Simulated scan of single mutants.
Amino acid sequence: MNGIYLIAMLIIVLYPMYFIVIASFSDPSAVGTGRVFLFPKGMNLKGYQLIFEYKQLWIGYRNTVLYTIGGSTLSVSLTLMTAYAFSRRDMVGRGFIVTLFIIPMFISGGLIPTYLLVRDLHLINNPLIVILLGSVSMWNIIITRTFFQSTIPAELFEAAKMDGCGNIGYFTRIVLPLSKAIIAVLIVFTAVGNWNSFFNALIYLNDRNYIPLQLVLREILTSQTQMMQQLDLGIVDQDMAEKTFLAESVKYGIIIISSLPVLCIYPFAQKYFVKGVMIGSLKG
């Protein structure tokens, strides 16, 4: 029964991914009319041709790569340094500072106060806001702090201190090399989060040269939905119907292209991922 259940769950998870792949290569009219189910019908690459010719898509792709690299680097760096400080029992005022960090996890200022703050900082329509806003996650800090406390013996710091090593040297030379598992987890969490993020860009960015890939995909999906509604109402001609079906193929192709970088991260981080999550979740 366990085997049957797991196989069924595997099919449920994999079929949507498989359908997206075959739909991106199939005849747009077959996809639009629901005739593609298990195998592609009428091999057609025109959707991919349109994708590669769409300039705004690659501008969004470039922006997303930059936001992901910059945001992940900043977030992981701040998380590791903050978690190390919180893991030190001799830190002055640690309980009070940790409390200040925990409060925003449950009580948020809200969208309007945040927007007013961003406006006063002159970060509206500034791509830095996508990297800075949300770069610190208390949840990741708690996991990382627990990892440091449960994995790295306190005696190591005492030994390093006797050899003349301070907190900075101990953190960079001893703690970081012993924390590859949790660093890999943080990189995966933050990279996937930054890659899929679109809300901050939607609220704070107006220049189309700064918008990320997810907003470009959202625009395409919105226009495609409107075209499908017009087709259902019968208010479009034959040429418009073909364009509508082609937009459906473009949608699936964009999903594949936008998901590839994220799918490529997991195989390299997999050996650290489970270990880091399990160790970081203990003694919380």
Score class of each variant (00 low, 15 high):
2 N>I: 15
5 Y>A: 08
6 L>E: 10
7 I>D: 00
9 M>H: 00
10 L>D: 05
12 I>D: 00
12 I>L: 15
13 V>W: 05
14 L>W: 07
17 M>E: 01
20 I>N: 12
21 V>A: 13
22 I>L: 09
23 A>P: 09
25 F>W: 06
30 A>E: 03
31 V>Q: 01
33 T>R: 09
38 L>V: 13
40 P>H: 04
41 K>L: 12
43 M>I: 15
50 L>E: 12
50 L>I: 03
51 I>F: 01
51 I>K: 02
52 F>P: 09
52 F>C: 07
54 Y>P: 00
55 K>I: 06
56 Q>M: 13
57 L>H: 08
57 L>S: 11
58 W>L: 04
58 W>R: 00
59 I>E: 09
66 L>T: 10
74 L>C: 05
76 V>P: 01
77 S>E: 05
77 S>T: 14
78 L>F: 11
79 T>A: 04
81 M>T: 04
82 T>W: 02
86 F>V: 09
86 F>H: 06
87 S>C: 06
89 R>S: 14
96 F>Y: 14
97 I>V: 14
98 V>P: 01
100 L>I: 13
105 M>Y: 01
106 F>R: 04
106 F>N: 01
112 I>K: 06
114 T>E: 14
115 Y>I: 05
117 L>P: 04
122 H>L: 04
122 H>E: 10
125 N>V: 07
129 I>K: 07
129 I>Y: 09
129 I>W: 07
130 V>Y: 04
132 L>N: 08
140 N>D: 11
141 I>P: 02
143 I>F: 08
143 I>C: 00
146 T>L: 00
146 T>D: 13
147 F>W: 11
153 P>G: 07
154 A>M: 11
157 F>M: 13
158 E>Q: 12
170 Y>C: 02
170 Y>H: 11
170 Y>S: 01
170 Y>A: 01
182 I>F: 02
188 V>H: 03
195 W>M: 02
197 S>P: 01
199 F>G: 00
200 N>A: 03
201 A>D: 08
203 I>L: 15
205 L>D: 03
207 D>V: 06
207 D>T: 14
211 I>F: 02
213 L>Q: 07
217 L>S: 01
223 S>F: 08
227 M>Y: 00
231 L>F: 09
238 Q>G: 06
238 Q>P: 00
241 A>N: 03
242 E>G: 05
243 K>W: 09
250 V>L: 03
255 I>W: 03
256 I>H: 06
257 I>L: 15
261 P>D: 07
261 P>Q: 07
276 G>W: 01
276 G>D: 02
282 L>P: 05
283 K>V: 13
284 G>N: 04
